[in-house]
Amino acid sequence: MTLPSNRVIGLAALITFIFLGIPMLGSEYIMGLGLTLLMWIALTQSWVILSAMTGYISLGHAVFFGVGAYVMVLCFNTIPFILSIIIAGLVGFILAFVIGYPCLRVRGPYFVILTFGLAELIKFIVINVEAGMGKFGRLVFGAPSLEILYYLILSLALTSILVTYFVRRSRFGFGLRAIRENEEAAETLGIDVARFKALAFAISATVPSMVGAVMILRNSYFEPMDVFNPVTSFTIVSMAIIGGGDDAPGPIYGALALVLLQELLWANWPEIYMIILGILLIIFVLKAPQGIHGWIISYRKYGKYENS
């Protein structure tokens, strides 16, 4: 495994230092914005481990976010919340591993539809279970402060970045990329394809479940329609496409671009921000189909913009 260069380590340390310092600015708005940004980085990084590395596009990652949130509201005020976050991660891992084995037998658009359908199925199971229990939305009062939640999400974002970085450079990561390029060939090379895919799915589900558990403490209200909202899955995919590539920097660029752009437009043109955002995204996808990360690599390599 190749270790990161000193320049990369220095840059990563500087960015981490900046994010560590955000709560000290004393602006809850900036801290909230930072929290949202880190949340999307963590979610998109996790998605990259499965979908960008193996080529199996998941359109149902919102389910893990929702399951994590559900675990948290069920455990809230009964066990320490840190323990609830860990349990949420474990539940996400096991759930993905169990459903991964049968689901990952199908490929291409079938897998995309399957993951989307599965997420909707689990959402409606939770809705029915809640309705059956006579619950209709749950309030989470007495959650930790925004600062604590910020640092928790920061640590999850850092974890997901490191996991993506090291997985990509490990034997496991090479195996996943071999599956993406040619699954049959990978199998003939001795890669345990079914186990690799299920494990990648399980790893990519763990952090989103933990993120869901933390974020429900911030929103303080659990409503299944919102926590299992498919828009979460669509946003993750959009960020990964905008960021580009199958490595750790892509999701960071994607989340940074989309969150900041959205915030800038929303704050200044609340009436028409969705229209502007849509137009900008179309232009971006047409002009830079390889994503920001791909564009940077191509710029470094050739010293100019290369479209292919």
Binding site: E28, S220, Y221, D226
Partner: peptide, 14 residues
């Protein structure tokens, strides 16, 4: 609901 939470935080703090 999550968006509403975000908006009310923004209205108060920003």
């Amino acid at each position: 609901t999550a968006k509403a939470v975000q908006i009310y935080e923004k209205l108060i703090t920003k």
